[in-house]
Write a protein that binds this DNA or RNA. Structure first.
Length: 336
DNA sequence: GTGGACG
DNA sequence: CGTCCACAACGCTGG
DNA sequence: CCAGCG
C-alpha cells in the first residue's frame, strides 16, 4: 500500500468514522455522550466457514470494521435477515418480522404488506449497534429493500443481476459490458459489483419517482434489448431449463418486497466472499467473482477507495432513460 | 440463536 | 426445567 | 391446480 492510499484511508476515516460512529446527527436527537457499545456478542468461537476456519467472531469483527462502508447501503431501508445460526453449512432461514422483544435502539418500521391486508414490522439497520445485533442473531448477509422507509413504494435502486448459471464467467463479463454500455448510452451510470457468489450486479441509484412496477418494466425492457444483441449468451428466460448455457439477466429483483444484496455484505458461501464494487476497467475474465473474501476487503478498500460511494451520493433521474427505451422499442427496428 | 409454547 | 418449534412470501410460469 | 423460481 502506498502512502497516498494510506493518507486517503486516514482522511476517509476522519470524515466517516468521527468520534462516535453510532451517532447520525442529522436525524437523531443529540446524544449526551457517545454511548458504549452494548451489544452482547454470543458464540464468538462458533465456526461459520469450516473450510476457511472462520468464526462468527471473525464475521462480527469484519462487519464492525467495514460498517462505515456498508451502513450507508442499509440506512433507512427495511431489511430482511437470512440467518445461519450454525454457520453456512447448517440450517438457514429468512427472517423479516421484527418481534416484539427487539431491543430499543434497533429501529423497526411497520409497513403494509403489498396486499394491504396486514402490516409487518420490519427491521431497519441504521447504525453499528443494530448491525451487530442483527449479525449476532446469526445473520450473514442482510437483504435491504430497493426503497427506503421514506417512500417504500418507489424504489431508489435499480438492479440487474447477471447469473452465469452454466454460462461461465467469460460470457457474464461480456453481458455485463454490453449492459453497462447500453445503460450509459441512455444516460445512466451503473455501478458494477460482484454478487459475492457467482454473478455480477449492475446497480443504479434512482430518484424515487416511479413505482416498482414501472422500474421493473423498464429493467426488463433494457434486458430485452441486450438479449437481442447477444442472443447466443444472454437470456431473460425464467425457466432454468430453457436458459441453456446463457447468462440469465434477472430483473425480477426490482419488485416490492424483493431485496438487493448491498455492496460490502458478506455472503454465506465457502469462500466467505463479499459483494465487492468493481471499477469497470477491472472487469475481466481473470477476475472470478468469488474473489475478495471478507478478510481482504479492507485492504482492497485501501487500494481502490469506495467504488460504491456514488450510489449514496447521487440519485439519477431515470425519466430520459425511460423515454429513450420507449423510443427504441417503438422505433420499429424489428421487435414485433 | 433465541424466545415462547408445551409437557 | 428440558425440548421443540418457528423464524418469508408472492406473482408468474410451466406442467 | 400445483410446483418451481427468484
Amino acid at each position: 500500500m502506498g502512502s497516498g492510499s494510506r493518507f486517503a484511508l486516514q482522511k476517509w476515516r476522519a470524515t466517516h468514522l468521527a468520534d462516535d460512529p453510532l451517532d447520525s446527527p442529522e436525524r437523531r436527537a443529540p446524544a449526551r455522550a457517545p454511548r458504549a457499545e452494548t451489544v452482547r456478542i454470543t458464540n464468538r468461537e462458533k465456526v461459520y466457514w469450516p473450510a476457511l476456519g472462520l468464526t462468527k467472531g471473525d464475521l462480527i469483527d469484519d462487519d464492525r470494521a467495514v460498517s462505515p462502508l456498508l451502513l450507508p447501503h442499509l440506512r433507512d431501508r427495511p431489511v430482511h435477515l437470512r440467518r445461519f445460526p450454525d454457520g453456512i453449512e447448517g440450517k438457514s432461514f429468512f427472517h423479516k418480522h421484527a418481534p416484539a422483544h427487539t431491543p430499543d435502539g434497533v429501529r423497526t418500521v411497520r409497513l403494509a404488506r403489498s396486499d394491504a391486508e396486514q402490516s409487518i414490522e420490519h427491521y431497519v439497520c441504521d447504525d453499528l449497534r443494530s448491525l451487530l445485533y442483527l449479525v449476532n442473531l446469526g445473520s450473514i448477509d442482510l437483504h435491504p429493500w430497493g426503497s427506503t422507509v421514506l417512500s417504500p413504494e418507489t424504489p431508489d435502486r435499480l438492479i440487474f443481476n447477471l447469473d452465469p448459471v452454466a454460462a461461465g464467467f467469460a460470457a457474464t463479463v461480456r453481458v455485463a459490458r454490453e449492459l453497462g454500455k447500453r445503460l450509459r448510452g441512455i444516460g445512466l451510470q451503473p455501478v458494477l459489483k460482484t454478487s459475492g457468489s457467482r454473478g455480477l450486479h449492475l446497480v443504479i441509484s434512482l430518484q424515487p419517482s416511479y413505482s416498482y412496477e414501472q422500474i421493473g418494466m423498464f429493467a426488463e425492457a433494457v434486458a430485452r434489448l441486450v438479449v437481442r444483441d447477444l442472443k447466443e449468451i444472454a437470456t431473460i428466460e425464467r425457466s432454468p431449463a430453457r436458459r441453456g448455457n446463457r447468462v440469465y439477466i434477472d430483473t425480477l429483483q426490482n419488485r416490492r418486497g424483493q431485496t438487493v444484496v448491498p455492496p460490502y455484505v458478506v455472503r454465506p458461501v465457502r469462500a466467505a466472499s463479499v459483494s465487492v464494487p468493481l471499477d469497470w476497467d477491472e472487469l475481466d475474465v481473470s477476475l472470478p467473482p468469488s474473489s475478495f473474501p471478507f478478510t481482504e476487503v479492507l485492504e482492497r478498500f485501501q487500494l481502490r477507495g469506495d467504488l460504491a460511494a456514488p450510489l449514496c451520493e447521487q440519485a439519477e433521474d431515470i425519466a430520459p432513460a425511460i423515454e429513450a427505451i420507449v423510443r427504441s422499442l417503438g422505433g420499429g427496428d424489428g421487435t414485433p
